[in-house]
Amino acid sequence: MGQTNPLEQFEIRRLIDLKIGGIDASFTNSSLFMVLIIVLTTVFVLYAMRKRAMVPGRFQLMAELTYEFIAGMVRDNVGKEGMPYFPFVFTLFMFILFANLLGMVPYSFTVTSHIIVTFALAIVVCVGVTVIGFMRHGLKFLGLFAPAGVPLVLLIILVPIEIISYVVRPCSLSIRLFANMMAGHTLMKVFASFVISLGLLAGWVPILLISALNGLEVGIAMLQAYVFVILTCLYLNDGVHMHH
């Protein structure tokens, strides 16, 4: 029991085996936590807003603050034209926030510590923004890759760079969230194993460190949800208004 593998917490376990047309679509612990996140988010918002009081209570205040916060973010970064996409951005924020925070509960599973999950979220955002861009601007949307007023010679270099920087976006968006979550959780587990190996005498030192780290991790959990969503807003701004 002495030395546990710090990466063991990220292991995917099949709970219900399921095969659809040769594709492994088993219900795993990851899926279980995603369902849990959705249920918890829905319950939180519905419970908080059940009274719709003019003077909000604690829970209603929390729900309203989150709502106002995201609404303000979309309005500031995308403008009024971005408000149709507000429900999506709010859902995204709540999902990532609850995923990150639920991962802080001991013995739970952090959905966002798997790059495939964060990449799926990021690719939805980026493909969505591209589709919105083409729907709103038609073929003129391609002008995003060729800034106006640049000489032709420079365009030969600039256009590939712009295209690459656009294509790379889902990767950087997903890697940021995944790396932050995974690094933090691994670090905690490593420190936790020090407690056991140092024994009764010196084992208290890592416990202090873990406590501090825990606070930091909760902060990172919220910050990363915020960062993911504000970058979504910035990309959405490109799609809606076509300028960086």
Binding site: E68, D76, C171, I175, R176, A179, Y226
Partner: peptide, 29 residues
């Protein structure tokens, strides 16, 4: 009038946090 909460968050966000974001951005590309 900008969202007060957001202004606080962008301000309170440490320079270290920003450096992290920039680093990830460059390395990924």
């Amino acid at each position: 009038s900008r969202g007060q909460a957001e202004r606080r968050l962008t301000e309170g966000k440490s320079s270290l946090g920003l450096a992290w974001q920039l680093g990830v951005e460059m390395i990924t590309a």
